[in-house]
Simulated assay, not measured.
Amino acid sequence: MSAGFRVVAVADYAAALAALRAVREAVFVQEQQVPAEIELDPHDPLCQHVLALDAEERPIGTGRLTPDRRIGRMAVLAGWRGRGVGEALLDALIERARQLGWRELSLHAQASAIGFYARRGFLPFGDRFVEACIDHQSMRLLLDATNPVETRAAALAALAGVIANARRGLSIYSRDLDPGLLDRPEVVAALRRLATSGGAIRVLLHDPGAPQRALAPLIGLSQRLSSVFEFRAIEEPVDLKYPSAYLVNDRDGWYYRPLGHRYDGETRLDGGARARQLRAHFDPVWERARPCSEYRALGI
């Protein structure tokens, strides 16, 4: 039991059909105005379903795995949103896919839910499309493997995943605070959430002057949260030759770009060996770098 609910795998579809329909009709048909004939499809009996139940065993959320290895029909009753039900359902579906030996999962995320799936490691691919009159984005996750990052949208999702899964520490190695990535409002907001929840954020920079001239929003945020953010500038010639960029958290999540001025690279939220390598690279460079005193707010 967690937060007044539990998630169960549905073994008997026929027995659980009424509970599944109760949630999906409330969310999709009544709330989102999806036609009932679209919401119900022939795949349902062939899918593996998970169901969230409240303390009185009433259905409050559901999701399914389709035979073509997709997550679908994720739905949580309005009164239970923001209480961890969706995350628990998604984790249960991912774990069930692992048990089945699947190596990849995909899904069609409603545009408003892209960030939700990114925080669990899913990356967008392809163009947005309309499904049941709602904007959607295809996303996928390679299970227990490194996930390739090929576009800016995927890069932003990778950042969201690594930041959201940090427990208390995040290390960022960047050339110039990565315009187009680290200045995006959703990324700044994610870093603010980490900072205000007790996290510590270290940032190594090749060129601290460029983000200062560009009025990078992270500098302003760091001045307001000066006990959490720390910036250092790389000065050693051997360190300045390093071409890559990355961020790594304290829970083995990372996003690495071989060339720091490009978006493409790779990411994983549970890659312990690679995370240890990146931390082992970051720490000695951090010790050699100088504090960015020019970032301090006046009067501090």
Rank of each mutant, 00 (worst) to 15 (best):
L142P: 09
P148A: 14
G169E: 15
L159A: 12
D239S: 02
I201K: 04
G220P: 01
V203E: 03
P211F: 02
I219N: 05
S197D: 00
C133D: 15
A160N: 14
P217Q: 06
V162E: 12
L215C: 14
H136C: 15
I172W: 04
E150R: 14
A210Q: 09
E186R: 12
R175Q: 12
R167Y: 11
A210E: 05
T151H: 09
D178Y: 06
I234V: 11
S222T: 01
S197G: 15
Q212T: 04
E230Q: 05
S174Q: 01
G169S: 14
I201Q: 06
A158P: 00
V149H: 02
P208Q: 07
L204Q: 00
D176H: 07
L215G: 11
A153V: 00
P237E: 08
R193N: 12
Y173L: 13
P208L: 12
L194S: 05
V188Y: 02
T151M: 11
G198Y: 08
P179G: 02
E150F: 00
G220F: 12
A166W: 06
S171A: 14
V187I: 15
V188M: 01
H206Q: 15
L205Q: 01
L182P: 04
S171Y: 03
E150L: 13
I201E: 08
R193W: 08
R167F: 08
F231W: 10
I172F: 05
E235R: 04
G220D: 08
Q223C: 02
R184K: 05
L170P: 06
L159E: 08
D239P: 08
P217G: 08
L204M: 01
R152F: 06
T146R: 15
I219W: 08
L194A: 00
G169W: 12
Y173H: 10
L181K: 01
D178E: 09
P208N: 05
R152Y: 08
E150D: 13
R184I: 04
D176M: 07
P237W: 09
R232E: 03
V187M: 10
V162H: 06
P217D: 05
A160Q: 09
I201H: 04
Y242F: 13
G220H: 11
D176N: 07
P211Q: 07
D135H: 13
I134G: 12
S227N: 13
R184H: 05
E186V: 02
P237M: 12
R152N: 10
T196R: 12
V187A: 14
L194W: 02
R167P: 00
H206W: 10
G199E: 03
E236H: 15
F229I: 00
R224F: 00
F231C: 08
H206A: 13
L221F: 08
L194Y: 01
R224M: 09
P237Y: 07
R224G: 11
A158G: 10
A153N: 07
G169M: 11
A214W: 02
N147P: 04
H206E: 09
S174R: 01
G180K: 11
L143I: 09
A233Y: 00
E230V: 05
L225G: 02
A164M: 06
P179S: 07
T196W: 01
L215E: 14
R175C: 10
R202L: 09
A210P: 01
C133V: 10
P179K: 04
L156P: 02
L191V: 00
A214M: 09
A153R: 11
A195N: 11
H136L: 04
A233E: 00
F229Y: 13
S226D: 14
F231V: 13
P211T: 00
L205R: 03
R213E: 06
